[in-house]
């Protein structure tokens, strides 16, 4: 069996790649995709720790996180579509009304 530490390391690399995506992408949908990547990195760490401790609690938590992700995507994409209708753009640099 592959040790838990390798799964956690893979999860860390996945999280870092997602962070790079959030920093470099300029379209709201693609930033959202990168956030999904980071969410899945956290899920992978939870599942790996569930095996390390032999506890099903973490797997239950991952199930709830997946449902939350579905709700988050539904709301987030609805917001993006609404913004696109008003502005014909989802570039996050154009949506800067709240800056000081």
């Amino acid at each position: 069996m592959v040790g838990t530490e390798w799964y956690i390391a893979l999860s860390g690399v996945l999280f870092a790649i997602g962070m790079i995506g959030v920093m470099t992408r300029r379209t709201a949908v693609l930033i959202f995709l990168s956030v999904e990547l980071m969410l899945n990195a956290a899920n992978l760490a939870l599942v790996a720790f569930a095996r390390a401790w032999g506890d099903l609690t973490a797997q239950t938590a991952v199930f709830i996180v997946m449902t939350l992700a579905a709700a988050e995507v539904a709301i987030g994409l609805a917001i993006i579509v609404t913004i696109f209708r008003k502005r014909a753009s989802t570039n996050v640099d154009d949506l800067a009304e709240l800056k000081g």
């Binding site: 069996m1 690399v13 790649i17 390390a52 797997q59």
Partner: peptide, 28 residues
């Protein structure tokens, strides 16, 4: 990203399983 991946990877590789993996897998 490279710094974060390196740091998380180094921290993760220092993890030692608290009990034999087969035992934990059986409990699942």
């Amino acid at each position: 990203g490279a710094a974060l991946a390196g740091a998380l990877g180094l921290i993760a590789l220092g993890w030692r399983d608290p009990r034999p993996l087969a035992e934990g897998a059986a409990a699942l």
